[in-house]
Design a protein around this nucleic acid. Structure first.
Lengths: 342, 342
DNA sequence: CTGTTAGCGCTTTCAT
DNA sequence: ATGAAAGCGCTAACAG
């Protein structure tokens, strides 16, 4: 048992050639001109022996490990992460790279650990993914490898992959307008402190900017702006219920789907029907958006595409500018229920 | 720029010692007896230079890469994956290992690719995580490293980490009984084909076995068993609505939270209140379980603990038996609303 | 066109 | 108690 691993030397010996020849043939270097016969023999020997190159040895020699690191603050806390990882994984696989996943919890000490762990393994590049913050702290370590920021930005590293929040904001308003809604709209989730530049400020500011510009251009203003710190269903519920005590909105524009979920609950409880009495739009395309009845019309965060873009950017040699990805409009039935929509 | 990486030789030179000495001191071998002075000098030099060992080189020499592979069929499709990954990541970090994450989509070709990619990188062990299937296909490749199955089993590899579905099933019934419910219970999600041994059969069979045993022991029988193929909210909704046309259950035991979510919608629509009119219990502790009003009482899948257990098992030298983890009872308000429950 | 040689950075006998 | 030297598996100069 524990058969010794087959090495390049074994292959070369079986093929009756030197390891050099075997190496060149197997790595498929174009500039070399070995006989077709040699090629055949080496490939034959390799597959017969089940040869697999030792990546550690190769990395030692070439400084290329065919692996990248995906370092994120949180991976499970938010449903966002999995889409990001999935997309990144798919792109890495296509490029025949392997991905190390590391989580830091946003703690500086763990960030340093993570970056060093990755660097110690000679990764070919690093992705810093942000689930929570927008401006990401990247430990002050010399990083001799390409870096791309995913869903975040950093002063040190210019390459970022971001969703087009501004346009997303505009689209949300446009959907309402196109459904013939021209007033009595409330905004749910606006938070003054965000605008002041605190928690996830940039991200939300862009979204908000798009919303407000579109509203202004249409000559509209919100009849109420409900703000809260925590964008969870219970907040959406409470705020909406309170709102309904004094106002009767025609539409509620929610800053994320979880808030919309809570609003949906409050609306149902009040006997209001969606979308006839009040329409709902929101952002993210959270899983719950499709669970509601009617389904939530939402401006999606293109997580999978973002993950994919980050890896492609990382692996493209001279990449010089990042990517801003469109947020797809997912129409379900919470604004209007045309034939064919759920 | 692009300062050359500092190597062990640099440290040794600065310390005025041989690389041998530096190596022994830095790796902290106990059996060697170098002078305290030598220790001090080497450590001093290392930290001054910011020395970091090259893991690839070390792996080449020692056959230990301090990395493990996490190979799963699906990572993003199910909300399960992230908990599993998160737990595994935490345990790996504590053991100073790094984790490669690979996704196969359950396709044999990709499974082979993934295993080889991992093996090529000399991983110290592999975890096969199953999100969909129970019995996992592991490609027939010689794997000279420990393997543990996570949320699945394999004929080839005996070490598995599984949730205690049987006890979980019993607990669900017990909760109903303890709330004084003693009849008119319906089972939602039972699927005859599962019992026949198809899709995720084993997992569900154990859960069902626990439920049925507990029911029988209490001298109870379901007044209806609603089966469906796809355990999603819309199915739960349709089935429950249909049920309500002819029967008035006192409780619905749902085989997962998404089904319960749909049942909840149908119940609310019918003007029935939870838990007073009908109680709800289910399984998984999906995120949505906490979003509902009242919150769903559910038997949780301990994903994070499972991920953690898998890594610990993998890294423990002589591990010989797997782990079966308890499914925690998460009491919210869908069976009864005692003071303090949401 | 092919083979020999010299390392990549590290650990580990084996001498001293 | 410490160091010289060999070698893990591979690739890249350089000869032949």
């Amino acid at each position: 048992m524990a058969k010794k691993r087959v090495t390049l030397a074994d292959v070369a010996k079986l093929a009756g050639l030197s390891t050099t020849a075997a190496s060149m043939i197997l790595t498929g270097r174009p500039d070399t001109r070995l006989s077709a016969e040699a090629h055949a023999k080496v490939h034959e020997a390799a597959s017969q022996l089940g040869y697999r190159p030792n990546v550690a040895a190769r990395a030692l020699r070439t400084d290329k490990s065919r692996s990248i690191a995906f370092i994120s603050d949180y991976v499970a806390t938010t449903r966002f992460a999995s889409g990001l990882i999935r997309g990144a994984l798919a792109a890495a696989e296509e490029a025949r790279h392997v991905m190390l996943v590391l989580e830091t919890g946003g703690e500086p000490a763990r960030e340093i650990q993570a970056v060093q762990a990755a660097l110690d393994r000679q990764v070919d590049g690093l992705i810093f993914a942000a689930m929570r913050a927008r401006e990401v702290f990247v430990p002050d370590i010399v990083i001799n490898a390409p870096v791309v920021m995913l869903n975040g930005t950093s002063a040190r590293f210019p390459l970022s992959v971001l969703p087009d929040e501004y346009q997303g904001g505009r689209d949300a308003v446009r959907l309402l307008l196109e459904a013939g809604i021209s007033g009595d709209i409330v905004l749910l989730g606006h938070n003054a402190e965000d605008e002041a530049g605190l928690f996830r400020s940039e991200m939300i500011n862009r979204r908000l900017a798009g919303i407000k510009d579109a509203m202004r251009e249409a000559g509209l203003a919100f009849i109420a702006e409900l703000s809260c710190w925590n964008w969870e269903p219970d907040q959406g519920f409470d705020l909406t219920r309170k709102l309904l005590a004094t106002k009767r909105p025609r539409a509620i524009l929610c800053l994320n789907d979880r808030l919309a979920f809570g609003a949906h609950q409050a609306l149902s409880e009040a006997g209001l029907s969606i979308p006839e009495d009040v329409a709902l739009v929101s952002f993210d395309n959270d899983e719950i958006a499709s669970y509601l009845r009617p389904g939530l019309t939402t401006i999606a965060l293109p997580h999978e595409e973002m993950g994919r873009a980050a890896v492609e950017l990382l692996l493209r040699p001279g990449a010089t500018s990042g990517a801003t990805l469109a947020m797809p409009i997912i129409e379900r039935g919470s604004i209007r229920s045309p034939a064919g929509l759920i």
